[in-house]
Amino acid sequence: MRHSEFWQVVEETFGAGYGRSLAEDLVLPGVGGRTAAAALAAGVAPKDVWDAMCDEMELDDAVRWRYRRDPKERRGGR
């Protein structure tokens, strides 16, 4: 997963505004108690940050693996 894929799947899953807010404010135990934005800035792999976000938000596997599907297929919300 690239950084651009991370941000795209965050927006597709949560919406642009709420997704960015979560990335900036939600503390993720799975990446050392940092926010997604801080973890990415610290060099944590985007896939690990996405997994931590999915864990914290209790998202199902269909959402967790959304970034692996064709972008046209992903546009179905959560």
Rank of each mutant, 00 (worst) to 15 (best):
M1V: 02
M1W: 05
R2F: 05
R2N: 15
H3Y: 12
S4N: 12
S4M: 09
S4G: 08
E5S: 14
E5N: 12
E5F: 06
F6Y: 13
F6A: 02
W7Q: 07
W7D: 04
W7K: 02
Q8L: 13
V9E: 10
V9Q: 04
V10Q: 00
E11C: 09
E11S: 13
E11R: 13
E11F: 04
E12T: 07
E12S: 05
E12K: 05
E12P: 04
T13F: 00
T13V: 14
T13W: 00
F14K: 03
F14V: 02
G15S: 08
G15I: 03
G15P: 01
A16K: 14
A16C: 09
A16S: 10
A16P: 04
G17W: 08
G17V: 14
G17T: 13
Y18L: 11
Y18E: 07
G19L: 04
G19I: 03
R20G: 09
R20W: 03
R20L: 12
R20V: 03
R20Y: 10
R20A: 15
R20F: 08
S21C: 10
S21R: 15
S21G: 10
A23M: 11
E24P: 00
D25P: 01
L26P: 10
V27K: 11
L28N: 06
L28K: 01
P29G: 06
P29A: 13
G30W: 01
G30I: 08
V31W: 01
V31Q: 08
G32I: 07
G33E: 06
G33F: 04
R34M: 15
T35F: 06
T35E: 08
A36N: 12
A37L: 13
A37T: 10
A37H: 08
A38F: 03
L40Y: 01
L40M: 05
A41S: 14
A41M: 04
A42R: 05
V44Q: 13
V44G: 00
A45L: 11
A45F: 02
K47H: 11
K47C: 05
D48E: 15
D48G: 01
D48C: 03
V49H: 00
V49I: 04
D51K: 05
D51R: 06
D51G: 02
A52P: 10
A52S: 11
A52I: 02
M53T: 07
C54Y: 01
C54Q: 08
C54L: 01
D55N: 08
D55H: 09
E56T: 15
M57W: 01
M57S: 07
M57D: 02
E58V: 09
E58G: 02
L59C: 02
L59E: 06
D61W: 09
A62L: 12
A62H: 12
A62T: 14
A62S: 10
V63N: 03
V63C: 12
V63W: 01
R64D: 03
R64E: 00
R64K: 13
W65F: 14
R66H: 06
Y67E: 09
Y67M: 03
R68F: 06
R68Q: 14
R69S: 11
R69W: 07
R69I: 03
D70R: 07
D70W: 09
K72S: 15
K72N: 08
R74E: 06
R74H: 08
R75M: 09
G76P: 02
G77H: 12
G77R: 14
G77N: 12
R78M: 07
